[in-house]
Design a protein around this nucleic acid. Structure first.
Length: 803
RNA sequence: GCGGGCGUGGUGGAAUUGGUAGACGCGCGGGAUUCAAAAUCCCGUUCCGCAAGGAGUGUGGGUUCGAUUCCCACCGCCCGCACCA
């Protein structure tokens, strides 16, 4: 529960927090101590954008948003522990973050290095990859430049192996998310070895398929590989080829269709095993930042190499064959990546792929021309942002002493308030006094670091601060040990990699330096679906352009089968049901719905119908139905009679079965199923005549809807004379004897087709059931005198006659 | 291309280990109530058929007494990653 305070709560928040609230309230009723906190991920870009656009201070804007959103959350009735509320822009919070950052620096997990960044020359700031659209800054529209800057990094790669291994134990995480993280970490094992070049240099290459080394027919280096760069100095053909490679688009579609391009350097490389001289190419499909930036090309068993070899008429040799007898058959237009037996490969012939991989690595290491190596896709985490509204990185640059951490007793390094956003760039950088400080070590004039931390750092440890909030430390390790790991972490799938990986890393890093004992922050993860709505639009087609205008749900009205702009005869196009978004205007404001239907109806809608992991299509008809159900419950509850007498055994059974089922459904997060059960019991209670059983059913219903519709439940609870708050009352007990029916319906089948149903006592013997079945006229008519070959009896379920 | 997920009525979706497909909600149809409407209540609502009956869970096959569920092939949609050597 750590939203970005963007200004207003949206339906996605409501859905997420309603699920969490139901769990929290339910578990409290079950007698557990529940920590259900709320805080604010309050640093970040939108506040600075607002400052630039509206001239308001990011801090004031953020605080105002928080106040507004908190009021909204309170209106919805979430049982949150507001005593633990904090925002990441509180100096107390980010001060502790600075101390932790300094601790990690001391432990060698923070470092600075020069790296290439996306630089927006108009806004004068670094942009994240996802903020660069078609090579242009998303805000300014300016052509983004690659710049080399000194940046702060966190050594997440030190934990790569552990982060990967830890996924195995996260059984209550969706398989999908674990897989995404696994791919992102991207472990691969292989061989690194070098080719001696005819120009006297050596080129190291990396391969995961050393077993195919005898099939290598060329060597290729990336366009920005040192070998290519050196050649470009004296050869403008090379230089222009490299430029051509770099110009290629970066979007997925462009990459997919990009043709393999190579430039023959006319240098040759000696194969370490065969001594053959292989041509060396500069190739556009080789990446400088993966492996060594150079590869051995094995066209027979790699599709990219195959495409390349085909284009440049290089030899294609089969070195792995599914059938060794056909080792020299021609290729069928594509590489053969499959498993098989090694052929045409000297000492490897006859081995399996796995054995050959080991054999080559062993031989390379023995002869000293290569080593087994593990390569990771995961990179260290660059946390520098040239921004104002973030946690200042607590370091000082001194000409004499170098990079010096701000002493702990001088933390927090707070943000100055007197900043301006009227010109682009980092206000901290151009502030007249803020960055000028004395070096803590030598006392001479020095400069404060003006970069602030990526906001993902703020959200990488907030859950520890929720556990306890001492003033002098970030958290109390005992409280952390008591509450962590988080038992129910609910969020959108968009956090699958970044936030969830960073938080896992921070938790490990803090454990590594002895601050906490827990390794994994989130024991169970649940990724909820989006709230969706259809879109309404009109398109206008000009001679050169085509424009689509969207309309919000309250700007349109439906008359018959057509949807019009309200109060007009202009029809709109009703589009697909997609995620609510401001740009498509298909949003519904929770406040407006609450004002109309009440918080309980909105909460109920969030839980009904759609399984929580799937998308929830918002509809007016749906919320109206929920609203009606609230009224219906109220009418039923109003008919409660504490003194009613008489027993309705079947209603008693239904009540207890429902209590047990709803509990199981809530625990499994099957809210839609719990809702359906409550509907059923409500219907049964309505149909039942007044009796003690009916009153008991009503009391049970009040308890069961309490976590979902707290307002109605509390109102009724008080009305029917309940003690205190129903939120504090225990979940109703279940009588196991009432969970089983004493009569069951038995399906009678002939050849697996249903012919009749009968009622039989629960637990009736197979023989008894068979006899009852054979007495069925419908079944006999179907059998029609045919000899019975077999009778299958599933007790309490069915009888199937086979003829 | 690689990886993952999903296909059930008009619609959102239910369905223990393979055992009565369509619970429950929405919508729709009919009726009651009302001067009328709203609200409410009752009945109906997978398809074909007057009925008996038949068909039916994306398509085609398979295993089984019995398949939404298991296996094989295919089609469609969605998501993630991507020239990762």
């Amino acid at each position: 529960m750590f939203p970005y305070p963007s200004g207003r709560i949206h339906m996605g928040h409501v859905r997420n927090y309603t699920m969490g609230d139901v769990l929290a309230r339910y578990q409290r009723m079950r007698g557990f101590e529940v920590l259900h906190p709320m805080g604010w991920d309050a640093f970040g870009m939108p506040a600075e954008n607002a400052a630039m656009e509206k001239g308001v201070h990011p801090g004031g804007w953020t605080r105002q948003n928080i106040a507004q959103m908190k009021a909204q959350l309170q209106r919805i009735g979430f049982a949150l522990d507001w005593t633990r509320e904090f925002a990441t822009c509180d100096p107390e919070y980010y001060g502790h973050e600075q101390a932790l950052f300094a601790d990690l620096y001391e432990a060698g997990l923070v470092y600075r290095k020069e790296s290439t960044v996306n630089w927006d020359p108009v806004d004068m700031t670094v942009l994240a990859n996802e903020q660069v659209i078609d090579g242009k800054g998303w805000r300014s529209g300016a052509e983004v430049e690659k710049r080399k800057l000194n940046q702060w990094f966190l050594k997440i790669t030190d934990f790569a192996e552990d982060l990967l291994a830890g996924l195995e134990n996260l059984e209550d995480w969706p398989e999908k998310v674990r897989l995404m993280q696994e791919n992102w970490i991207g472990k691969s094992q292989g061989l690194e070895f070098s080719f001696d070049l005819s120009n006297g240099e050596r080129v190291p290459v990396y391969t995961t398929r050393p077993d195919t080394i005898f099939g290598a027919s060329f060597v290729a280096v990336a366009a920005d590989h040192p070998v290519a760069q050196a050649l470009a100095m004296n050869n403008c053909d090379v230089a222009s080829f490299i430029a051509r490679c770099k110009k290629g688009g970066t979007t997925a579609a462009e990459l997919e269709t990009a043709e393999k391009l190579g430039f023959d350097t006319e240098i040759s490389a000696r194969h370490p095993l065969t001594g053959a001289e292989l041509p060396v190419y500069i190739a556009n499909f080789v990446l400088m930042d993966y492996g060594t930036g150079a590869i051995m090309g094995v066209p027979g068993h790699d599709q990219r190499d195959f495409d390349f070899a085909t284009k440049y008429a290089l030899p294609i040799t089969r070195v792995v064959a599914s059938d060794p007898a056909r080792a020299d058959d021609p290729f069928k237009g594509e590489a053969e990546a499959g498993d098989g037996v090694i052929v045409n490969s000297g000492f490897l012939n006859g081995m399996s792929v796995d054995d050959a991989i080991q054999a080559v690595i062993t031989r390379a290491e023995g002869e000293g021309w290569g080593t087994g190596r593990t390569v990771w896709r995961l990179r260290d985490w660059g946390v520098s942002r040239q921004r104002y509204w973030g946690t200042p990185i607590p370091f000082i640059h001194c000409e004499a002493c170098g990079v010096v951490p701000v002493p702990k007793d001088q933390l927090p390094v707070t943000l100055p308030d007197d900043v301006s956003f009227d010109i682009p760039g980092n206000p901290l950088e151009r502030h007249p006094t803020w960055k000028h400080v004395d070096c803590p070590k030598c006392g001479r004039a020095a400069l404060r670091e003006t970069d602030t931390l990526d906001t993902f750092v703020d959200s990488s440890w907030y859950f520890l601060r929720f556990a306890s909030q001492p003033a002098d430390r970030p958290f109390d390790p005992e409280e952390v040990a008591k509450w962590m790991p988080v038992q129910h972490y609910i969020g959108g799938i968009e956090h699958a990699i970044l936030h969830l990986l960073y938080a896992r890393f921070w938790t490990r890093a803090l454990a590594h330096i002895g601050k906490i004992t827990v390794q994994e922050p989130f024991a169970a993860l649940f990724t909820q679906g989006m709230v969706t709505h259809e879109t309404y639009s009109q398109s206008t087609f000009g001679s050169t352009s085509h424009r689509t205008e969207y309309f919000s749900p309250d700007e349109v009205e439906r008359r018959g089968n057509v949807t019009y702009i309200k109060g007009t005869d202009e029809p709109v196009l009703v589009g697909r049901v997609i995620k609510m978004s401001k740009s498509k205007k298909n949003v519904v404001d929770p406040d407006a719905i609450i004002a109309r239907h009440g918080a309980d109806a909105v909460r109920w809608f969030m839980l009904s119908d759609s399984p929580p992991e799937r998308d929830l299509p918002w509809s007016d008809a749906g919320i109206e139905g929920c609203s009606r159900f609230v009224q219906r419950l109220w009418r039923l509850f109003s008919a409660y009679d504490a003194g009613a007498v008489g027993e309705d055994k079947s209603l008693d059974r239904k009540t207890h079965q429902t209590i047990a089922a709803v509990a199981a459904d809530i625990e499994a997060l099957g809210f839609n199923k719990a809702v359906a059960r409550i509907y059923e019991l409500t219907g049964a209670a309505e149909k039942s005549a007044p009796s003690a059983s009916r009153s008991a059913a009503i009391r049970a219903l009040v308890h069961m809807v309490a976590p979902m519709m707290p307002h109605l439940a509390e109102e009724v609870w008080a009305k029917i004379g309940g003690e205190g708050l129903i939120a504090d009352a225990p979940w109703p007990a279940v009588d196991p004897a009432l969970l089983v029916d004493d009569e069951v319906t038995i399906a009678l089948q002939h050849m697996g087709k249903l012919r009749d149903t009968i009622t039989a006592p629960k637990g009736a013997s197979k023989d008894a059931l068979e006899a009852l079945a054979l007495a069925s006229a419908n079944l006999q008519r179907s059998i029609d005198g045919a000899p019975v070959r077999k009778v299958i009896v599933v007790p309490d379920r069915l009888v199937n006659i086979v003829t």
